[in-house]
Design a protein around this nucleic acid. Structure first.
Lengths: 291, 291
DNA sequence: TTGCTCCTCACGTCACGTGAGGTGGC
DNA sequence: TTGCTCCTCACGTCACGTGAGGTGGC
């Protein structure tokens, strides 16, 4: 019989760990003195402790380990647990790989440019949204800007402001011709628009539903409305470097119009993307050996 | 100005997260109504939030991120943080790889043998230890066993039992010849032995210090003392499969002598090992792409 | 006025590490 | 008797998630 200190030294674990395992019923000492509370472990418990440590190393939770030790556990069940665990490891592996790539890219950039100027691109999912917009082929970025300004003045007085979210632009042109931009310009809504709205003789806002996008890369532009091209450039370069494929209709969500006449707007640029297939984590694991 | 709900929807994070970031001073709303406690965020805070999310994605802690955002942070400092982070990622990567290998091996074994019988090998470090032992060339495993029995009867009456740890055997023979085993047999001690001790006319226990071992593979044998060969076999096979290299003098630590005459002993087998070089995590990262 | 949104506690997560303050064992 | 070991709380870790119970805003 060993007291906790000896047993912990033999197994090279902390006493606290042994007490904790006792507390959660994972490994209790063979005998506990009820008077003093002293725990006494037997050498025959060492294999069990070692099994626990090995399974923990594999990344199983203490709860899973307890179940493995308690019941005789069918082979099927074990296979299931291991397969699940394998999938988990592969996931974290692939996540860590991505992270490593990005960290390395940033380090690289510091070396070459001595500067830190990576754009904060966020990949996210956007849900379906109600939209109330005008579609037209605009003669330039500036005419879009003028329409946006006009809407922001007129629409809130026509529609209950509680229904209105941000102003958004959906760009349909696939080739970017600065003199002929096919786009929808309008308001994102919190609920379905009841009907169309005439803004002027020229423009009528029509209700529609924007489809959801599974993965879209977003980058926030802070600056003049008509000067988003630089930010688009950053976003495009980033996508290329991180091997994303552009896949659908671009959107711009205007979070904030300029507060003072020539001030900064805040616009979220959204470009739908896809990740092209490549190696799986499993195929890589085969030729990987640890240092 | 957005209330917390809107802002959280725009950025696709939970309200709780925003409140938490406010609480820890990472990102506070531009304005807080002191009467109601309502938080109001500005669109101009979106880029900051996105920067936080990106840095978090890289695996930096919120504390590191706060420091990055607060001070203008020198390039040097950032380089340091990223380099540290890179090393961390490579470490977890290599750890996960090992885990994946082991999980896969176990799954493989279930497929082929339908059984689970992997030995619970533990890699650990053993510290330097005081030793009091007899060195001899023994004519067989059984004569070692007899000496061990004799010591366990005689020594505790000669030396204060508080000084004694387990009985251990250090095997010097490099080639295993069952009829001529060069070994030290004796007691591990809790403190330096004051002097040598005569056990009989034939044997005198001499004090020494066993050197520490950085990495040693251990496996616990439960069974007859002289039947450790099967357990050695398991340990050897495991080492081979996991590509460890055997590197030094083997040891056996007897945790428990048989309680009844032909009963089971508990013996920890220790084989010093080294990991031969192979790919580094970095070199692998190069040809890895994520699904 | 009725929902909806926001607020502040406060506990839970996971596997222990780290004291504090007190007692048993040789 | 003096150290050394062991004991039981109980808080801390990290980054929030998840209610509970109550209130502001339109």
């Amino acid at each position: 019989m060993f007291r906790i200190g000896e047993f912990s030294r033999i197994a090279q674990v902390s006493g606290r760990l042994l007490r904790y395992y006792d507390e959660i019923g994972l490994l209790s000492p063979e005998f506990t003195d009820l008077q003093t509370g002293y725990r006494y472990y037997s050498a025959y418990q060492l294999p069990t402790l070692n099994r626990i440590l090995v399974l923990k190393e594999l990344g199983l939770s203490l709860d899973q380990i307890r179940r493995l030790l308690k019941e005789p556990t069918s082979t099927e069940e074990l296979r299931g647990m291991l397969a699940l665990r394998k999938a988990q490891i592969e996931q974290t592996l692939s996540g860590e790989m991505t992270r490593l790539h990005i960290v390395e890219a940033r380090l690289q950039q510091i070396e070459t440019h001595g500067q830190i100027q990576e754009p904060d691109v966020i990949i996210k999912t956007v849900p379906a949204q109600h939209f109330l917009s005008v579609r037209d082929t605009f003669a330039g970025v500036d005419s879009i800007r003028q329409l946006v300004q006009k809407m922001s003045r007129v629409v809130p007085s026509v529609i209950s402001p509680g229904l209105l979210n941000s102003i958004a632009i959906v760009i349909h042109s696939t080739l970017f011709d600065p003199d002929a931009i096919d786009a929808d310009v309008g308001y994102l809504l919190t609920a379905k628009a009841p009907k169309f709205i005439s803004l002027s003789e020229e423009y009528t806002l029509m209700p529609s539903e924007l489809p959801p996008i599974q993965t879209t890369a977003t980058l926030v532009h802070v600056g003049r409305i008509h000067e988003t091209h630089r930010t688009y450039g950053l976003l495009g370069t980033w996508l290329e470097q991180n091997q994303w494929q552009i896949s659908g209709t671009w959107r711009e969500v205007i979070m904030q119009l300029p507060v003072v006449p020539e001030g900064d707007a805040v616009i979220e640029l959204q470009i739908p993307v896809l990740k092209p297939n490549s190696h799986t984590a499993a195929s890589i694991a085969l030729d990987f050996d640890v240092t």
